[in-house]
């Protein structure tokens, strides 16, 4: 099933399928290793439009909602 990171389940490894955003966002996420084929895990999700925290390559990043919604993952 393909969904965006916002709707992905908490605490489970999922695989990045695509980043559907502008070139800036793609580059930024690319530098962190958020690229198709990579494992990523959502660890925390804040309510009310707050950020989410993902684990990628062993480090943790806080991302805003807009960014997270552009990362498509396979569950």
């Amino acid at each position: 099933m393909k969904i965006d990171l916002l709707r992905a389940p908490l605490g489970r490894d999922v695989i990045v399928i695509d980043v559907v955003g502008g070139i800036c966002l793609k580059q930024r996420l690319f530098a962190l290793g958020i690229v198709p084929g990579k494992k990523i895990k959502k660890v925390v999700q804040h309510p009310m439009g707050g950020p989410i925290i993902v684990e990628i390559n062993g480090s943790r990043f806080a991302l805003g909602r807009g960014m997270a919604s552009k990362v498509i993952v396979e569950v």
């Binding site: 925290i53 480090s59 943790r60 990043f61 806080a62 991302l63 805003g64 909602r65 960014m67």
Partner: peptide, 8 residues
């Protein structure tokens, strides 16, 4: 304004 993008 851009969104949060921060290493923890």
């Amino acid at each position: 304004s851009p969104e949060l993008f921060l290493e923890i």
